[in-house]
Nucleic acid binder design. Sequence first.
DNA 1: ATTCTTCGATTACGTCTGTAGCCGAAACGA
DNA 2: TCGTTTCGGCTACAGACGTAATCGAAGAAT
Lengths: 129, 129
Amino acid sequence: MAKRKNAPGERISEAEHAVMEVLWDKNPISAAEVCDQVCAQRDWSIPTVKTLLSRLVQKEVVGTEPDGRKFLYRPLIARADYVGGESRRLVERLFGGRAAPLFAQLAESEALTEDDLAEIEALLREMRK
Amino acid sequence: MAKRKNAPGERISEAEHAVMEVLWDKNPISAAEVCDQVCAQRDWSIPTVKTLLSRLVQKEVVGTEPDGRKFLYRPLIARADYVGGESRRLVERLFGGRAAPLFAQLAESEALTEDDLAEIEALLREMRK
DNA sequence: ATTCTTCGATTACGTCTGTAGCCGAAACGA
DNA sequence: TCGTTTCGGCTACAGACGTAATCGAAGAAT
């Protein structure tokens, strides 16, 4: 009954997510390389990135492989899985599990561009077959 | 430096959100009444609910009005605003601000029911005019 | 008036999160 | 071989969060 854990399931925090994005973009890479990417956007220092990386390793969502004296990191979960999980969680929590109200909400708050609409229409048409 | 917050914006936590849901459903109500609702679902005790309420008051998202010797609480922000904000935040963080990929994601992870599809189609048709 | 009951307010405390410093071992340069 | 640089690993610490007990004042009951 609890929502606890599927295979990969340890919760990923906001800051950790930023690190994951970098890893999804390119991997495997070293801590320093991760910092190159992420320290540009969020104003972090190397130690911070290393802490986040080790927490992610602990949570078993990031794996390591030795590369000479250093380590290379790579994600152990697919971005699509993470993103899907977060999306479903939001729909669950805020819209009683129904996606339509989310859509309505986005529409109302003008978060939908003309392009979005067209794209969604296309997707719908495709799913209809 | 610490994290920023603007007028409406103090972050509402998961547990606090549960309390907000109760207040949105019925208000103004007393702490005890909030507990009646929320302690049924989450297994909390009165002190917990009161703590959450006072934190929400501090964050200025819940207001109080004296009712004899006790207080009645009511939300100061609309549910639609909160929900809209959270939705936009998710779309921003996970989909680069584009809603279409969210939709695709939900579709792929089978989070869309037949009803959802129909409803969304209807909404789309309506927006098309 | 004295006690019993209610509340809100204050305090507590372990965990998680954001952010970072320090240390020791390994690799490198001389 | 010896110091210097480079890493990963452990340690730290403040603020947020989840959860709750305790205190003190205002009312109610007798």
